[in-house]
Design a protein around this nucleic acid. Sequence first.
DNA 1: TTATTTATGCAAATAATTTGCAATTTTTAA
DNA 2: TTAAAAATTGCAAATTATTTGCATAAATAA
Lengths: 145, 145
Amino acid sequence: MKTAVSKKLDQKAEKLIKENNLSLTESRKNILGYLLKNHGPFSVEEIHNGLGNKACNLATVYRSIAQFENSNLVERRYLGDGILRYEYKDMKHHHHHIICRICKNVAKMKYCFVSEIEQMVRDKGYSDITHSLEFFGVCAKCKAK
Amino acid sequence: MKTAVSKKLDQKAEKLIKENNLSLTESRKNILGYLLKNHGPFSVEEIHNGLGNKACNLATVYRSIAQFENSNLVERRYLGDGILRYEYKDMKHHHHHIICRICKNVAKMKYCFVSEIEQMVRDKGYSDITHSLEFFGVCAKCKAK
DNA sequence: TTATTTATGCAAATAATTTGCAATTTTTAA
DNA sequence: TTAAAAATTGCAAATTATTTGCATAAATAA
């Protein structure tokens, strides 16, 4: 069963892949579609499972993600546990995360005023600046236990 | 040749190890001493090489670093390239990094006003909050090339 | 000092990621 | 539209970073 929203996001995935001059394959459509429909970040394995495992090979997920990263469609996150995760890089909704050190739940933090600091970095002579900011803490639920 | 400063930092390493109730071994003194004397972050392999390789086994560096992390003496950094790095956690000099995407040079950024945001995280019910903030850009040198 | 606990070296085991290569799919261009 | 060229995929094997088991050695406690 494909909802209208799901279909729309599949189309968006297709559009993004073409716009970035990547060849349009089933796997890539599925992988990027998955990231558009689900709010990550996800490990490569989670994406692979999420797609149903037989959708494509794990190596293909790695390769596709690498392409998407190069094309700036996806961004890598490191949450401190030794596993890399990826999520769709939505330019219009820049955000950060709050990760519970115990249950690993990832909450979104929409507010960001790091851009003010980026100006300082720019003043030091750097260009093409990005940043990664993650918060770690113990969430209320875990604290109560 | 051991300078006075170097000797002082070795003593500091020793003190820190004892204070944290870790047994005081040659390896641990060397590893923490290295992190006190050199401004990281460093990968486990870099530390191992830095100490001269025969100083101790690579596995020992991994194990010692894990201990130091638990004792909050050392903090883990992820600079986006798939390798974990570690540096001495100097409570008195909290700072962030600016990493050149090309030459990988790591510059220190002493200024930090993320603590203001931490209050927001606290307000959401999280406790024991820490954060990780890294900037990535192309440094002036690399840009000129 | 001797007993007990803890750490180390070494080699083997894991786990995540990458790669080579033949087969397949996608794109290009006639 | 179709044939040729280019790029991607699956699979298995290779890498790489990290962890672990276990016997030996060193550090701490009594």
